[in-house]
């Protein structure tokens, strides 16, 4: 069985971003970039399935700038076998529909049985790519997964939904998007990081894949959210209740 995992290069989750001076977008200059945490969980899950003998080969793909190679290498260090970079110019804003179309072309060529990806990236927070790719490839989808069980023809997936959990049984090939609690990714060891440097990354482009990546949505502006007025400290429970009753009038 073969798994395809897609990964995204994003601003590290510890970095607090700000709008550009002219508010035309987010200021991304000289920020620490990382593998999107949800994608990392997807990679880890694929590696665990390989360790269990369910999967033989893990292919990791990223659609992004040349530098996204670093994130592919990070996935290879966790345990993926080979990489594909669908390279775009770094000033092009990639949107989920374009990414889903590129993934569809890679899927057609590689014919994986299981496609794993993060439920959302922590930059755009769209939560769309997995669902859109599944639609284009006409595959079943198990989004927001917190547990997986794979056998030869099916994957049983537990999904985190509002109010609890939902369990679905999907016919392979199927698309899974990982939620936070699917697993805790390992730290790549130094030997595996060294080994990952020798693994192969194939490069292609959206043009080669015959995909139009022109944005469908344009950014008008990016701003800080309106600030809340500064609050006050109260010194006792009595004072708190008094304020909630008479000032805020919420109780």
């Amino acid at each position: 069985m073969k798994a395809l995992v897609s990964v995204k290069r994003v601003v590290d989750y510890n970095v607090k971003v700000s709008p550009k001076d002219d508010n035309s977008g987010v200021n991304l200059n000289n920020l620490k970039m990382s593998l999107n945490p949800f994608c990392e969980i997807a990679v880890e899950e694929a590696v665990r399935l390989k360790e269990k003998g369910v999967i033989e080969e893990i292919l990791v793909v990223s659609i992004g700038p040349q530098e996204a190679q670093e994130q592919i290498r990070a996935a290879l260090a966790i345990g993926a076998d080979r990489g594909i970079l669908v390279k775009v110019e770094s000033d092009i804003e990639l949107q989920p529909l374009a990414v889903a179309k590129c993934l569809k072309k890679v899927f057609d060529r590689e014919q994986p049985d299981l496609i794993l990806m993060g439920k959302q990236s922590i930059d755009g927070d769209n939560n769309q790519t997995g669902q859109m790719f599944a639609a284009l490839a006409n595959l079943p989808q198990g989004t927001f997964a917190s547990e997986l069980a794979v056998n030869s023809n099916h994957v049983t997936v537990t999904r985190e939904v509002d109010g609890g959990f939902q369990t679905l049984r999907l016919t392979l090939p199927a698309v899974i998007t990982s939620d936070l609690r699917l697993n805790e990714p390992r730290y790549a060891s130094l030997p595996s990081i060294m080994q990952a440097k020798k693994k192969q990354i194939h490069e292609t482009t959206p043009e080669e894949l015959d995909v139009d990546i022109a944005p469908r949505v344009s950014v008008v502006s990016v701003d800080f959210p309106p600030e809340r007025p500064e609050g006050v400290k109260v010194s006792s429970v009595d004072e708190l209740l008094e304020k909630l009753k008479n000032e805020a009038k919420v109780i």
């Binding site: 987010v26 949505v217 950014v219 800080f224 959210p225």
Partner: peptide, 16 residues
């Protein structure tokens, strides 16, 4: 819509 965990708000125009 909020992006980057709500740290910034994007105003976007759809051409679809």
């Amino acid at each position: 819509r909020p992006i980057y965990a709500g740290n910034v708000i994007a105003t976007i125009q759809s051409h679809d």
